[in-house]
Design a protein around this nucleic acid. Sequence first.
DNA 1: GTGAAAGCGCTAACAC
DNA 2: GTGTTAGCGCTTTCAC
Lengths: 347, 347
Amino acid sequence: MNKRSVPSIRLVAERAGVSVATVSNVLNNKPNVSPDFASRVHLAVRELGYVVSRAASQMRSERHRLAGVVVPDLTNPMFASFVSTLEHVARLDGFDLIVVSARNNAEEERARLDDLRAWRPAGLIVIPCDGALTDRLPQGLGGPVVVADRIPDDHAFDLIAVNNGSAAASIAAHLSEQGFADCLVLGTSLGITNVRERWDGFRAAAGPMRAELIEVGIDDDARFQLLEERLRGPNPPRALFALDHQTSIAAYRLLGEVGLSIPHDIAFASFDEMEWMRLVSPPITAVRQPVEEMAQAAWRHLVRRLEEDRAEERKRDRKQIRRLRCAIEIRGSTLPRCRTSRRSETA
Amino acid sequence: MNKRSVPSIRLVAERAGVSVATVSNVLNNKPNVSPDFASRVHLAVRELGYVVSRAASQMRSERHRLAGVVVPDLTNPMFASFVSTLEHVARLDGFDLIVVSARNNAEEERARLDDLRAWRPAGLIVIPCDGALTDRLPQGLGGPVVVADRIPDDHAFDLIAVNNGSAAASIAAHLSEQGFADCLVLGTSLGITNVRERWDGFRAAAGPMRAELIEVGIDDDARFQLLEERLRGPNPPRALFALDHQTSIAAYRLLGEVGLSIPHDIAFASFDEMEWMRLVSPPITAVRQPVEEMAQAAWRHLVRRLEEDRAEERKRDRKQIRRLRCAIEIRGSTLPRCRTSRRSETA
DNA sequence: GTGAAAGCGCTAACAC
DNA sequence: GTGTTAGCGCTTTCAC
């Protein structure tokens, strides 16, 4: 009884009066095990509190149930929700997940991806920091990679993302329909594909409404200053549309500081919905991304790839892309005339 | 080149023209390796893109750097932040983390704790679902367990928690000082030690202010109805103090529905601070828990226990408890007379 | 059906 | 300093 007295398969075998092979067969639901032997093994397992060691089992067998997950930031509620859902569905398939956060840093992402190899994961699900994931992916990860949410610059990966363009277009159509003459759109950077798609979709559907963009960057005070000047200036926009959660928070706070009231002075809408947007008064019109659906789709996709690999099907050359629809939550922040709330979906 | 052509230590050894033992020694920074051999190994490692397999290495060596983390719910921003910090500091010590969520379900927590044994983690950090963690902890986890945030019913664990009583007392003192005649306190259940400590601390420091408690439960509509009746009734309280984040959100929304304005009709304060509390108008007075500090303290504690174990020091019989101070953010929601914001800390 | 034995990739003891 | 070797706990042939 060495090593903290954690029982091994040998101990189980001795106690059950069978060989280790039989114990292994029973525990892995192999056929050709007599009921008598099986129950003896199960009894011994229960008595000893035995659990198969993943380390040992994964080392020996080809298909081990372990997958890696990389997200840009665990403290972002959207990614936390993504991981939480992923963990749940993965467990249903008997998979364990090793989860790492890149802490919004491309270099750290590279390091984490590198470290992940030590686990020899069967596959990977990644929400990358930016579009240049390919440059950061180490050699020899040796398994399928599914990218979610953020869109890589190249087409080197299977991808699950949302339909940014049509969701942003819905907001544009709504604002236009409400009679707003112009709208200022706030995005971190057009260098991010998601932001670009949203801006393009918005502009295309703006109709007679004038659309203007400010790239505020990420935590870039200087650029954010531009927005403040614009809001305090002589001709502030009639509507504001922030293209991601981080920017929404910053913009919403700024509106309060500047003293513009929603929706009387200015309408406000957000891409990305968070709980507080329903709590404030008036509640905020927002695009709600199907995060959980995205996680489930990503997982199913990874599992399918794993099965293809096992079946030696070599259709791996063609990467698949799937786009999910967002929900549009119309609320008081974009309804100058009435305060009732409506709900619809993008086409 | 078997198995997806992931290189093994043997391949590295061949390429470097040394033995596997030397490769292992180099990679584990063992002394007694000549610089010449070391550099040859490093070169081969780089050329092959070799990474040590954790599975194989942990199986052979006694002290492997892997710890388990269990939280009640990853989508709760506080726990997400806890995990994120933990992951960061653990990595600095060369540890990987296997993270699981109990999804707010004690039975699932038990199952996840059981599954965790398969990893043979060196130690565990747990934020338990409720006080009865001891009943759910399987035998043979074989390593130190550090509990954080939620306080177990027994004293069977090392514990890192916050000073609930004095933080709640600070809020009571503040409200009393502001001249509120009475305050309604909202907690899920006094069965939860954290809630009980907060309520006790509040009551003890209420002074002349009348303090009343409603246990609203978790997602218990019937009990929440009591609160609504109380608010709509003839003598609504002058102040409201919600003892956790979930309850805060529900109560804040209810205040809006009932039509009581903050702080004119009623003051509002929350135990647990979230980002939106700074965004709403007026911003909300809140107790901010030192989540990151808690994660760091928990990690340091676990590492210390691991070292003690290795040194065979047997002071394990005495469990240690550490309480951290919360910050009190005084904001407009509890300042009927003026709107300026202040900040202080609990004693 | 069952068990003996090989071997996964690695570390630790020990021989040189 | 370096290499040889045993063996960690398990799965997987392959005899029987």
